[in-house]
Computed example of a mutant assay.
Amino acid sequence: MSTLEPLFEIPATPLIPVKGETRGYPVHRIFCVGRNYAAHAAEMGVEVDREEPFYFTKPASAITPTGSTIPYPPGTENFHYEMELVIAIGAPAFRVSVEDAPKAVYGYACGLDMTRRDLQQASRLKQRPWDFGKAFERSAIISDITQTGDFPAIGKQRIWLKVGDEVRQDSHLSDMVWSVPEIVSHLSRFYHLAPGDLIYTGTPAGVGPVVAGDVITGGIDGLRDLALTIGPAE
């Protein structure tokens, strides 16, 4: 039987630098936790679902390395930042317990879930999926990954974001509603998690709009900081 050849060029798999490694982390899928900080849910006019976490996804084409300049995206007039802790999965995980979930974690990074807020809110009002607001190119910014052995147990590490010199988000990882082990365990009930899967764990309060020319910086204690510049609209 002949082997099929692709009709067109296959997009390259995004590779994320890893602290202390010469090889990159290949991105498979991107999951994002919604409303994982109570104060952020309140500022969005909704409540946290404390029965179980919920998720949305982004395409691998959303991955953008720290230090990049991205164009102000099409279709929106209200482009928002969301600073987040990112989990990088490094081992298969399917129906794992909360106790065993940390074994599947390869490392952590700082991330930005960039959001077309007006499109997300319009979809929410119509009870439609959030894809237009969340799942678009260059919307998942990420710093270099720090392996778990070089990052202390998650607790009261500060998570912060600035636009220019102004602090807009300032919280702690201990404010997350769902912990890393709980998120990994819960998500593994519905997916065969695999090396290359990223999980953006939600954002604290203080989200807001950016415009062309803005420079965003953010960080989490113990991880590499990230930076992003917003360029002119496409």
Rank of each mutant, 00 (worst) to 15 (best):
E9Q: 15
Y191L: 10
V184T: 06
A205D: 03
F31M: 02
A194W: 09
Y72G: 11
G90M: 02
G218E: 03
S2C: 10
H28M: 04
D49P: 09
L187Y: 01
S68P: 06
H186F: 12
A109F: 04
R35N: 07
S188N: 09
S143A: 09
R224A: 11
E5V: 14
F190A: 12
G222T: 11
E77S: 14
V86C: 03
I89W: 02
P6S: 10
E166W: 05
F94L: 12
V180N: 03
E99Q: 09
Y25A: 00
L193C: 04
F54T: 12
I16S: 04
A212V: 05
S188W: 01
G222S: 08
A194E: 11
F56N: 01
S123K: 13
V215Q: 14
A91E: 11
L223G: 01
S97P: 01
R168F: 04
E234M: 14
E137C: 12
A140N: 04
T201K: 09
N78L: 10
A153V: 15
V46R: 05
R117L: 06
I16L: 11
P6L: 15
A41Y: 03
V177A: 08
V46N: 13
L226Q: 07
F190V: 10
V210I: 11
A93T: 05
R138N: 13
A135S: 15
A140C: 09
E21V: 02
G67I: 07
D150Y: 13
I87T: 01
V180H: 01
Y55S: 01
E166T: 10
A38G: 04
P152V: 14
P14F: 07
P129N: 10
N36Y: 00
G20M: 01
S68L: 07
G164C: 05
A38D: 06
P71I: 11
A62N: 02
V27N: 03
T64E: 06
S61D: 05
T217N: 02
G231I: 11
A212Q: 08
P232Q: 15
S2L: 09
M44D: 08
D165S: 14
P73E: 07
L7H: 09
A12F: 04
R189H: 10
V163A: 06
D150W: 06
S185N: 05
E9A: 14
E52A: 14
V105G: 05
A42D: 08
L161S: 02
L7C: 07
V96M: 12
L161V: 04
I63A: 03
Q169A: 11
P129Q: 15
Q147L: 09
D197E: 09
F190P: 11
E47L: 09
K103A: 15
G133F: 03
M83R: 07
R189D: 15
L228I: 08
G202K: 00
K126S: 15
L119S: 08
E51W: 09
P232A: 07
A109S: 05
A38E: 13
F190I: 15
K162I: 00
T76Y: 02
L7F: 11
D214Q: 06
A42N: 10
P65H: 13
G24V: 01
N36G: 07
S174D: 14
A12E: 09
K103N: 14
T64S: 10
G202M: 00
T203V: 04
V207N: 07
P232N: 13
G208V: 09
F56D: 01
L7E: 13
I141V: 14
P73F: 07
P195Y: 02
K19M: 10
E77I: 12
R124L: 13
P59E: 04
K162G: 00
